[in-house]
Computed example of a mutant assay.
Amino acid sequence: MSGNVLNEEAQQVRDAIAGLFAEDTPEQRFVRLTALLQGWRPLHEAVREMRQEAGAALYDGGSGMTYKDIGGLISVTESRARQIAKGIVRSDQDRAKAEKRATADGA
């Protein structure tokens, strides 16, 4: 996805945010949008957790959809779908790899 193209859900969020500040002065908008950006990381984490819960519900302990089918819903691999449903984020993987390398180097 290019930097200027939003999917439908992202566009709806953008429109909702714009609506929150529609009657503000530019100064008010500037201050309030800065505050919004300062809270963005926790919001991003909350959305990620919601997606994880939905993925786990789809998998349903193995009695629901397969990870391959879940991945097909969002065009990712079976492995990535498993990571999403289990709440594994890339930074977790990178940290684990770094720890493994450090242990191997120190052995």
Results as ranks from 00 to 15, higher is better:
Arg51Trp: 02
Pro42Thr: 07
Val13Met: 14
Trp40Met: 11
Ala10Ser: 15
Arg51Asn: 01
Lys86Pro: 01
Leu43Gln: 14
Arg82Ile: 00
Val31Phe: 13
Ile74Arg: 02
Tyr67Cys: 02
Ser63Lys: 11
Leu43Met: 07
Ala54Ile: 12
Ala54Lys: 14
Gly61Phe: 05
Ala10Met: 06
Glu99Pro: 00
Ala56Lys: 09
Ser63Ile: 06
Ala57Gln: 09
Ala102Leu: 05
Glu23Ser: 14
Gln11Tyr: 05
Arg14Asn: 06
Gly61Trp: 01
Arg80Glu: 14
Tyr59Trp: 13
Gly71Asp: 10
Asn7Arg: 03
Asn4Arg: 09
Thr34Cys: 09
Val76Thr: 06
Gln11Asp: 09
Gly3Ser: 10
Glu49Leu: 09
Leu73Cys: 10
Ala22Trp: 00
Ala107Thr: 12
Gly19Thr: 10
Arg80Tyr: 04
Asp69Trp: 02
Val31Gln: 13
Gly3Cys: 07
Ala10Gly: 09
Ala56Asp: 15
Ala98His: 08
Leu36Cys: 07
Gly72Phe: 08
Val13Asp: 06
Glu23Leu: 03
Asp105Ser: 05
Gln93Met: 13
Ala98Ile: 02
Gln38Pro: 00
Ala10Leu: 15
Arg80Lys: 12
Arg101Asp: 11
Val5Ala: 13
Asp94Ser: 06
Ile17Gly: 02
Ala46Trp: 07
Glu27Ile: 15
Asn7Ser: 05
Tyr59Phe: 11
Leu37His: 02
Ile70Asn: 09
Gln38Lys: 14
Ile84Trp: 02
Gly61Gln: 03
Phe21Pro: 02
Gln52Ala: 01
Ala98Met: 03
Glu45Met: 15
Ala104Val: 12
Lys97Leu: 15
Ala107Glu: 15
Gly62Cys: 01
Asp92Gly: 11
Met65Phe: 12
Ile84Asn: 13
Tyr67Pro: 00
Ala16Tyr: 12
Leu20Pro: 00
Gln28Tyr: 01
Thr66Ser: 15
Glu9His: 13
Arg95Val: 02
Ala85Phe: 04
Arg90Tyr: 03
Glu23Ala: 13
Arg48Lys: 10
Arg41Tyr: 08
Glu99Tyr: 11
Ser75Ala: 03
Asp94Leu: 05
Gln12Cys: 02
Ala57Asp: 13
Gly72Ile: 10
Arg82Leu: 03
Ala98Arg: 12
Arg80Pro: 03
Ala35Val: 09
Val47Ile: 12
Ser91Asn: 11
Asn7Glu: 10
Met50Pro: 01
Gly64Asp: 08
Gly64Lys: 04
Gly106Gln: 15
Leu33Ala: 07
Leu36Gln: 02
Glu53Lys: 10
Val5Gly: 00
Leu36Asn: 08
